[in-house]
Amino acid sequence: MLRVESLSKTFGKGSTNEKLALNEINLSLQEGEFVTIIGGNGAGKSTLLNCISGVYEIDEGRIILDSKDVTSDPEYKRSRHIGRVFQDPLKGTAHDMTIEENLAIAFAKGKPVGLQSGVTKKDTTLFKERLELLDLGLENRIRQKVGLLSGGQRQALTLLMATIIKPRLLLLDEHTAALDPTIARKVLSLTRKLVSEEKLCTLMITHNMKASLEYGTRTIMMHGGKIMMDLQGEEREDMTVDRLIEQFEKRSGAELDNDRMLLS
């Protein structure tokens, strides 16, 4: 489904700030797999997602999506098969446009963009049905500007937009990190619902150790631009948060100094 082959990425090559962000990453995802990614700051989690989605050009390696080499495809082309939700709730929606208009752009993914009517009555009916799934009452506010929504509502909407045309791959980059805990839980359970209903192949970065084991079918841990641990099956089911932290410290040779990771 997704294959990342010896992917390397260095920022600021040749400068004094040179940083090897990804070091020969190999990763292979099966159909319908829901992978959670954990790791400290600067581990390369976001960089990995940004390389897969084409935001960054990679230095070495290949990215294969659906047995097609997309390494040299620009971001917008890859996006036709990839759904994305970012950490910053402002990034996923156009704030000066209405909920309906935002959904219409998402719904047009992969279709020709020309002088067709931007949104039809049929579309509106469908959007309302989908919005009802969120259980946030947004179906009654479809003509309101997205700028009026809260961060959590915007993330839920972005999630809906990322999946309204079923993507081959869903990339979630700490999409609940900027939300308050109650809303974060809601968005997470919505994520689980959408992913399992549509059997979406998903990569989700989280800073929450507990969530990394609770959600998904597989957990990988990154450190220093490498994948340190790849948990699946029984080994993952038997894993606890405490042992995960212990393993992390042992394998990375570093103390977990990230309070955010431990406390949440």
């Binding site: 989605s53 996006s79 994305r84 990034k91 156009a94 704030h95 208009e101």
Partner: peptide, 15 residues
């Protein structure tokens, strides 16, 4: 209109 508002989102939606 969305491009002026948030070009990152527009690219993420395949345009």
């Amino acid at each position: 209109r969305a491009t002026g508002d948030n070009d990152q989102m527009v690219r993420a939606l395949g345009v």
